[in-house]
Computed example of a mutant assay.
Amino acid sequence: MSHHLTEAVKACITACDECATECGNCFTHMVGKESSNDCPACCIECAAMCRMCADAMARNSPFQKEICALCAKICDWCAEQCDAHDMDHCKRCAEACRRCAEACRSMGG
């Protein structure tokens, strides 16, 4: 691995990967179901952003801080939406989103 992949960056990439996975799982369970908020649409947005964020950190993008900050914002939104539901997959998604948001905020400066 390249020298720029510090333990903090690796942890943030892992959090992004885990969040994207949980968002995909939540979307799969929620698609076609009634929702009173932006779940499952938020899951698609969040998963895409998490993947982009992980890729940006892996390649040491000059826009890494801005991408991480936006990822944290989207994760916060998705966590709020999914946490409003009682299903286990939504709760797991919300928790993964909160962990990712925290990790991204630490990278976003």
Rank of each mutant, 00 (worst) to 15 (best):
M1W: 10
A8F: 00
D17A: 10
E18H: 11
C19D: 00
A20F: 14
A20W: 12
E22Y: 04
C23N: 07
F27Y: 12
F27R: 04
F27M: 03
V31W: 04
V31H: 05
V31F: 02
K33L: 01
E34T: 12
D38H: 07
D38S: 12
C39V: 01
P40K: 00
A41G: 10
I44H: 04
E45D: 12
C46E: 09
C50P: 06
R51L: 08
R51P: 01
M52Q: 11
M52P: 00
A54S: 09
A54E: 02
A54I: 03
A56Q: 00
R59W: 15
N60M: 10
N60F: 12
P62R: 01
K65A: 05
K65I: 01
I67A: 00
A69V: 08
A72H: 06
I74D: 05
C75L: 08
C75S: 13
W77L: 10
C82V: 11
C82M: 03
H85K: 09
H85E: 11
D86S: 15
D86A: 15
H89T: 15
K91D: 00
R92E: 13
C93Y: 04
C93I: 10
A96T: 13
A96M: 09
C97H: 03
R98I: 09
R98V: 10
C100P: 04
C100Y: 11
A101E: 07
E102C: 05
E102I: 10
E102D: 15
A103F: 02
A103R: 07
S106E: 04
G109P: 02
